[in-house]
Every structure is written in structure tokens, then in C-alpha cells.
């Protein structure tokens, strides 16, 4: 049910998360200069997934939400991961 309490995240924490996000963006661009072949997509997805996790957890306050809501959001991640995995079954064996 509803979690009506409010939470304030310290600016220091938000600033750190922002720095990490900027670093990960830089990393996304940098890894394209390495020839990782089929793993290029995997690395890009892992970095993007980590960024999404940080945004949801800190900027969207998921950290302070109920367990049910966190499970529901986690299942969305799992669903997208499964969809991507299934798509790559085709690409891997074609």
C-alpha cells in the first residue's frame, strides 16, 4: 500500500551519483574505441543498466519505497533482460 513518508537525500549523495553517471557516460563512449566484437553490446547494456539503477535508486527515491514497489521495478529490469536475451538467441545462431 501507499508509502506516504517523504525522504530528503543529501546533496552530497546526489552529487556523487551525478559524478558516477557522468563517468559511466564517458565510459560508454570510450569503450566504443575497443573492438569487443559481440561483447560490445553486452558492455553497453551493462553500463546503461547500471546508470538506470542509480537514477531509479537515488534520483527517483526507489531506495525509500516499499518492498513491493522495488520488486515490481526489478521485474521490469528482468523482463527487459529476458527480451534482449531471447532476441540474441536469434542473432547468435543465425
Amino acid at each position: 500500500m501507499a508509502n506516504n513518508t517523504t525522504h530528503t537525500t543529501e546533496y552530497r549523495v546526489l552529487a556523487r551519483v551525478l559524478l558516477v553517471l557522468m563517468f559511466l557516460t564517458f565510459l560508454t563512449i570510450s569503450v566504443t574505441s575497443y573492438h569487443l566484437a559481440a561483447f560490445g553490446v553486452t558492455v553497453a547494456l551493462l553500463i546503461a543498466g547500471t546508470k538506470g539503477f542509480l537514477v531509479l535508486t537515488y534520483f527517483m527515491h526507489l531506495k525509500y519505497e516499499s518492498l513491493l514497489l522495488r520488486i515490481l521495478v526489478s521485474m521490469v529490469f528482468v523482463l527487459y533482460a529476458v527480451i534482449i536475451l531471447i532476441t540474441f538467441i536469434d542473432y547468435a545462431y543465425r
Partner: peptide, 20 residues
């Protein structure tokens, strides 16, 4: 969510993806 490939059985998908 996981069954979309049956629209593409004749589109040149891999055999593994087809049976899946």
C-alpha cells in the same frame, strides 16, 4: 511478452529461435 517471434518464422530467423 516472450512469444513475438512466431510472427517471424519465415523471416530468416535462426532455427533455435524458432523452436524457442
Amino acid at each position: 511478452f516472450l512469444v513475438w517471434g512466431h510472427h517471424m518464422f519465415t523471416s530468416g530467423m535462426s532455427n533455435q529461435a524458432r523452436w524457442f
